[in-house]
Amino acid sequence: MDEESVRKSLAGLVLTIVELLRQLMERQALRRVDQGGVSDEQIEKLGLTLMALEKNMEELREHFGLTEDDLNLDLGPLGPLLPRD
């Protein structure tokens, strides 16, 4: 395995973990909004933050030549790691 493929594999693993955390944070934010415990100003900030995170992830994937599917590890009988909406 050459240095570039090792770099790409490591980047894929790190970005997979970051994407998993991003999706979990998004779900938690939506749950808080649905429960009504968030002000309109907080909703706006959450939305902007989540959009910025998603954009940054897209830029990082492009930088390392990865797709969304590259980050979605196959867990065998459990199915894919990252649910896609």
Rank of each mutant, 00 (worst) to 15 (best):
Ser9Phe: 08
Met25Thr: 08
Thr49Trp: 01
Ser5Phe: 04
Phe64Val: 00
Gly65His: 05
Gln23Tyr: 04
Leu21Pro: 04
Gly36Asp: 03
Asp70Glu: 07
Glu54Val: 03
Pro80Thr: 05
Leu81Met: 10
Met51Pro: 02
Glu68Ile: 03
Met25Asp: 10
His63Trp: 03
Ile43Ser: 06
Gly37Ile: 06
Ile43Gln: 11
Asp40Cys: 05
Leu48Gln: 13
Val38His: 05
Gln28Ala: 14
Pro77Ala: 06
Leu10Gly: 00
Val18Asn: 04
Val6Glu: 14
Glu54Lys: 15
Leu73Glu: 04
Ala11Phe: 00
Leu73Asp: 00
Glu4Ala: 14
Gly47Met: 04
His63Ala: 08
Gln23Trp: 04
Leu81Tyr: 01
Gln35Trp: 06
Lys55Ser: 08
Asp69Gly: 06
Leu60His: 02
Asp74Ser: 14
Gly12Tyr: 00
Gly36Lys: 13
Leu82Cys: 01
Arg84Asp: 03
Thr67Lys: 15
Ala29Ile: 08
Glu58Arg: 14
His63Val: 00
Asn56Gly: 09
His63Thr: 01
Ile17Gly: 03
Leu73Pro: 02
Ile43Thr: 09
Leu21Lys: 12
Glu58Ser: 10
Glu41Gln: 15
Leu53Lys: 01
Arg31Gly: 11
Glu4Arg: 14
Asp85Ala: 11
Glu44Lys: 10
Val6Asn: 12
Glu26Gly: 13
Leu46Tyr: 01
Leu66Asp: 01
Ser9Gly: 10
Glu26Ile: 03
Val14Arg: 11
